[in-house]
Amino acid sequence: MKYLFRFLPAGLILLTAACNKNDKDPAPDTTAHEKVFYDWKKLVVGADLSAVNMVQANGGRYEDSGRAKDPYLLFKQYGCNAVRLRLFHNPAAPGGYNAEGYCGLEDVVRSIRRAKTLNMAVNLDFHYSDTWADPGAQIPPAAWAGKPLNVLKDSIYNYTLSVLNHLKALNLVPEMVQVGNETQPGMLLPEGRINNNDFSNLAVLLNSGIKAVRDFSQTSTIKPMIILHPASAQIQQWWFNGIKGAGVTDYDIIGISYYEEWTTVKLDALKTLIGQLKSTFNKQVLVVETNYQWTKASQDGVVYKEPVTINGFAISPDGQLAYHKALTQTIIDGGGMGIMVWEPAWISNAQSWGQELIAFFDFTGKSLPGLQFMHQPYKF
């Protein structure tokens, strides 16, 4: 996930607020609830915390109940049981994510250690790129540029296996592994592109990554569950039928990016979709990315992302909490494995595109009600 924000004139902020005056902005829930802390194997309630190291290095500070806190500990105390982390091949390469190496292997090692110290499960997301891989960009690492499909197949296998072996030597094996990120058009383009519903090249690459994880599991006490993650909800049936027809069947979890304003599958239809995916492909289903805004304008007063009110949930701190609660219950009702919120701790301006609008913290780093969605007493 990387936002492509649309800038709006500051004068539209008040107009937008007026248009949303009838939204459902729930009063703060003062009813005493028993806090429930779930095992991730019963219900994943997780967060992508990939940017935290970068945010903290740039002065980001997190606060809860008037006290500064380590963000990993803070999420754990609110019920977070799984952390998602993206891995870029070489972020310092030309055209890569950044020269400092954030989201490279050394940075990911630091992050996994922070999660594992608190007994949180880890979902390691291989992007197979030096920067963001998503539906708009699946760029091979600079070290693999121009290589033919048969070489890329071996590169994926060797790289995936070497990363996992490195993590095993540090006692940091992830519980889940994503073989690719938002691979809707394919991966390692152009070689791995889906062409006219021909998934064969993509299947070669996916099966190579899958084989690396399965071969690694033969030597590991922790045997990572494999997630395939094409992206939006509305393309799941097409994509998973396509890879099945091309011979990709050995994976454990269907991963969905669920941003309701960008999908035709609205909240009331998500339950049905999850059930259909489970029954059709006999796999678990996990929402690996989602979020919801708590405010309309960033700290500098600029609207980076045009506010979209979904299902009447207000764009407010309490509206954000209400939305995540409703989405989590919908996932459970559909038989889903759980939910991972995308970058809810990205609060500083360190390579930021306005992510602070969807964080679980205000502009000063103070915690917001959204964190509470993780320990709600959901119905099963």
Rank of each mutant, 00 (worst) to 15 (best):
G255W: 01
R113T: 01
Q320T: 03
L357S: 08
Y378A: 09
S65K: 09
G59L: 13
F361T: 03
G370D: 06
K35Y: 04
A68K: 13
V248Q: 05
Y102G: 08
T117F: 05
K278A: 06
E175I: 06
R84D: 04
V285S: 10
N158K: 15
G242C: 10
K305W: 13
G136A: 11
A326Q: 12
S208D: 05
K366D: 05
H375I: 02
H166C: 06
A297G: 05
A51Q: 07
M54P: 05
G136D: 04
G136K: 11
L118K: 10
Q293M: 15
L152H: 11
G96I: 01
S298F: 15
L164H: 13
P94N: 04
G301Y: 14
L167C: 03
I210D: 12
K266S: 11
D215G: 07
C103S: 13
L12H: 10
Q138V: 11
L12M: 12
F361G: 01
P28A: 09
W238Y: 08
G365M: 08
W132H: 04
G95F: 09
E100P: 01
G335C: 06
T183E: 04
S217N: 03
I112F: 08
V287T: 06
N196H: 08
K153V: 03
E34G: 01
I253M: 07
P141E: 02
T221P: 00
Q237R: 13
L371A: 06
R113S: 12
F37G: 00
W40A: 11
E175A: 09
A345Q: 02
L368F: 05
A169D: 08
Y38M: 08
P148R: 01
S155V: 02
G186N: 10
N196F: 00
I210N: 14
N158F: 15
N150M: 05
A92F: 01
A231I: 01
R86W: 00
S298K: 07
Y62M: 12
N171V: 00
W346K: 10
Y159G: 11
G301C: 09
M176P: 00
I139N: 13
T328N: 10
K271L: 09
T330A: 15
L357T: 12
L228T: 09
G334F: 06
V122R: 02
D125A: 10
